[in-house]
């Protein structure tokens, strides 16, 4: 287990910031930590990284107590904080070389260039960081987080400011790290699309409490949240022939917006649709289940 948090509580002065946070992350897993603004996600990260000591509860990261073994832990994890600051007067290459030395890593200039290429910053080395766009700074922040070949990567809004191609590239890097190198990734984001594409496990926290935690498939199935799709069908198809598993939400020309309950296997629903004689040209998943689940859980908490 890379991260194991149980009944975490943290008080800052008289204010209880974290009341009951639970989280488990295994090797090679990408875990999405979700929650509204001010829910306690960043504070949880600060406890996981050893920057804050918990008031009570158990926190183990890579088998270590983060508050007591922060120095050892920091050499084994990589973190991309939400506000990724750098020494702007340095070039990206010089900065990464400096960070590598701080981590006692013998990376040479070609090694730094390879790392920069991996996050899509090829050929940017001589330019001072001051000239970088927000997206480029995000990429540089990710390169910094990867510099020590971490066993655990903690990312706070890693795709903020990236264009669609950039997001896809970062997704590919994270999937490669997770699947091929066994790196555990704790992803803190508001972008449910990122979570949908990357994560196998999520935790939703609000007001300092974990409301829900588990694998996405199990949670969606348990919540019976519907998943939405956008279909392009052959012109003139009639919606009356839809099987019972599929609910038509809206129709715009050849495009149908439909919903399938999460406990139903999408493949079987499409098969029934085809058997009913409707010819499908394209299927696109839209936010769907995860978004519904997130909204249902956080709204229920707010109402309570």
């Amino acid at each position: 287990m890379l991260v194991e948090i149980s009944k975490l509580k943290l008080n800052l002065g008289a204010h209880a910031v974290l009341r009951d946070v639970n989280l488990t992350l295994q090797k090679g897993q990408i875990y999405g930590l979700l929650g509204p603004n001010g829910a306690g996600k960043s504070t949880t990260i600060s406890v996981v990284t050893g920057l804050r000591a918990p008031t009570s509860g158990s926190v183990r990261v890579l088998g270590l107590d983060p508050a007591a073994d922060a120095l050892h832990l920091h050499s084994r994890i990589g973190v991309l904080a939400e506000q990724a600051g750098f020494y702007d007067w340095m070039s990206a290459g010089d900065y990464l070389l400096w960070v590598a030395r701080l981590y006692q890593k013998n990376l040479d200039k070609p090694g730094i260039a390879r790392l920069m290429g991996r996050v899509g910053l090829d050929g940017q080395s001589p330019a001072p960081i001051d000239t970088y766009s927000r997206g480029m700074r995000q990429r540089l922040g990710l390169a910094r987080a990867l510099i020590n070949q971490p066993e655990l990567l903690i990312l706070d809004e890693p795709t903020n400011g990236l264009d669609p191609r950039g997001r896809r590239e970062i997704h590919d890097v994270l999937l490669d790290l997770s699947v091929n190198q066994g790196v555990g990734i704790l992803l803190c984001t508001h972008l449910l699309d990122d979570v949908d594409r990357l994560c196998t496990r999520i935790g939703i926290i609000a007001q300092g409490r974990t409301l829900l935690e588990g694998s996405i498939a199990d949670l969606l199935s348990a919540q019976r949240a519907a998943v939405r799709y956008r279909l392009r069908v052959e012109a003139g198809e009639a919606a009356q022939q839809l099987p019972a598993e599929i609910t038509l939400l809206a129709r715009a020309g050849d495009w149908w917006h439909v919903e399938i309950a999460s406990h139903i296997e999408p493949a079987s629903a499409w098969r029934k649709l085809l058997y009913s004689g409707i010819r499908i040209d394209e299927i696109h998943r839209e936010g769907g289940g995860l978004e519904e689940l997130y909204l249902a859980v956080t709204e229920a908490k707010e109402a309570a």
Partner: peptide
């Protein structure tokens, strides 16, 4: 100043006392 420029956190998260 480092805190205001966002560069303090990476320094505190490095293996440095």
């Amino acid at each position: 100043g480092e805190r205001e420029r966002g560069s303090l956190m990476p320094l505190l998260l490095a293996p440095v006392t």
